[in-house]
Design a protein around this nucleic acid. Structure first.
Lengths: 342, 342
DNA sequence: TCGTCGTGAGAAAGCGGTTTCTCATGGAGG
DNA sequence: CCTCCATGAGAAACCGCTTTCTCACGACGA
């Protein structure tokens, strides 16, 4: 430890420029009080030596290292990938980098991971945290500055960025009822998912708003396989009168459509199918999938905007919920009267 | 700066435990020379105060902060996402976190981004760097310890982890020739992509190995849209005798198949289609897509293994190239003789 | 008893940069 | 000429932790 580690330090620059370290520091940090001759001499020495200040030393003095930690339940999830992309690009514009911590859906590790990651960084992003609400409230108080994604925390002094899934579902139901559908099915997402709970609330609200509309909730999941496997119970619901299906997300919808096709069910002629999230493949499925579009990258950029404000000592900015946009495609069409009903 | 910043420091722990800071440090770092009474007293103080050592201070002393930077051309790419997932999970097992830098395909910024990111971290991962080879050689010498993904650097003292795309293509061609296909088309990837260059080399080698096999190269890209748009030139190639198509990757193949279906071309009866990467959707397409499977998460874990060795002062480990595994599905079948040729 | 060796623990220096305080110089005004 | 004020720059302390060096004490052997 007592040996110099080969890197160029501020002492080397000061020696080469013939000034004190304090002067080098002042030049580095743009202080106005430095004689221009010294400024040029220091800059010349910096360039000649290829000097870059130690992040650790600066961090020790400033108490900040210009990193932000992002904790996610699973990096496989397209939403989190999009948020990471948007966040990392936006933060880079302010000299920040994103440090990633993936909890692999181990809920019991989520809190410790968040605390550890935050300890390394200036701020934290919690993506769709799975832990119980009381625990989450205590955590956000502890790890500020923090932004939470896709998890409501009424009354908590923390910015929330998310998608208004309830609203999206209601809009989707409206699209389908305008096409004449009155009996629908909703293929549910994972039980532990807060965004699925919101979708289900949207389902309930849509059904409550129109006494003619009935929406049956079916078990499902979040992946292609889950949708594929849900086809059986979807067809049962169809026997009970359902003419349209809303899937938790596009992957579920795409898997479902594959199985329906294998089973000889014509989409949308015999059964309409709609998804959520509008993944790129939705536009290339057969039939093209009607879906609610969510701006993933932009979510990440919004997260950064709020974090930046918090880091700078600003106020807790408003919760922002993106309203999903309806992308009507081929998989939904007007209900066709079943034989004898015409 | 002269005010204490509220965090618990080693001085607080020392005061509470009634020992020196050196003793607290010794306990923290597991030194054997400490009296067990002092160990317990220190541990009790740490727990009571909720103390966690400053990452910056430790980093300053040790010259390491247990982070590794990963530079990618675009976080949208499923391969990089998978590598990030595998790397971040593997590194976490050793107390490391991954810091992400996305260059947004701005090749001119790649080098500076890599240097800056490395400066913040203990090591670097360069994913499919786009810069010219000479520049890349100079860079890897400068930023060691570094692992490069999907980019060959013969003779360079740097571990390479990647996919043997040439071998994958040759295996795919073999699969198709065994089905009786003799005239093939390859829908090319992005011009600047090193992995596309490898695939094209594989195409040339496969054609050179069998004088009966002819492979025509067509322009394409890397996304669903690119595949969709390539259908026209694919059909032209079919007029010239091609009975099977290999696409740069699965997204291109899926987009292509959508357009072929719209144009009334039966896959694989009239034209066989194969992809690369085996994304989840390949198993749910209609027809199910034949593809070369690549273990994305495992690539990330391999990257970590090599980085860890380098960080520990170990040798440059061997380049590892994963051989893609052929996943035969419905989109490829035996060539059907065209009318009149039977 | 005295001297030597080994072990445990505190003091102080150091990691690399920043900031505060102090000093020196020059200019202006009385 | 002398004093005061403003400005520029270096010295030293500090950020929080680690490590080295030194001291003290105890035990053992001569």
């Amino acid at each position: 430890m007592r040996e110099r580690r080969g890197a160029v330090t501020i002492a080397d620059v000061a020696a080469r420029a013939g000034v004190s370290q304090a002067s080098v520091s002042r030049v580095l940090n743009g202080k106005r009080s430095v004689d221009p001759v010294i400024v040029r001499s220091v800059q010349s020495a910096i360039a000649a030596l290829g000097y870059a200040p130690s992040v650790a030393a600066r961090s020790l003095v400033h108490g900040r290292n210009h990193t932000v930690a992002m904790v996610v339940p699973d990096l496989e999830n397209p939403l989190f990938q999009g948020i990471l992309k948007g966040l990392s690009r936006a933060a880079a514009g302010d000299g920040y980098r994103v440090l990633v911590a993936d909890t692999a859906e181990r809920i019991e590790e989520e809190e410790a991971t968040a605390i550890e990651a935050r300890h390394r960084c200036d701020a934290l992003v919690l993506c769709a945290p799975r832990m119980p609400e009381a625990q989450l409230r205590r955590l956000v108080a502890r790890v500020a500055p923090v932004v939470v994604v896709n998890r409501q925390l009424p009354g908590a002094e923390v910015p929330i960025v998310g998608v208004d899934y309830g609203r999206g579902i209601r809009d989707l139901v409206e699209h389908l009822t305008k096409l004449g559908h009155r009996r629908l099915a909703y293929v549910s997402g994972p039980e532990a998912s807060a965004s699925n709970a919101e979708r289900r609330r949207g389902v309930e609200e849509a059904a409550a708003a129109d006494p003619d509309v009935h929406i049956e909730v079916l078990p499902g999941g979040s992946r292609l396989d889950d949708g594929y496997d849900a086809a059986r119970s979807v067809l049962d619901a169809r026997e009970r009168g359902a003419t349209a299906v809303i899937a938790f997300n596009d992957l579920v919808a795409l898997g479902l459509m594959t199985r329906l096709r294998e089973l000889g069910v014509d989409v949308p002629a015999e059964l309409a199918v709609a998804g959520f999230d509008d993944v790129p493949m939705a536009r290339f499925a057969t039939p093209r999938l009607t879906s609610m579009s969510v701006p993933r990258d932009e979510l990440g950029a919004q997260v950064w905007g709020r974090l930046r404000t918090l880091i700078a000592g600003g106020p807790v900015e408003h919760t922002v919920l993106y309203r999903p946009r309806l992308e009507v495609r081929e998989s939904t069409a007007a209900v066709v009267a079943k034989g004898g009903d015409a």
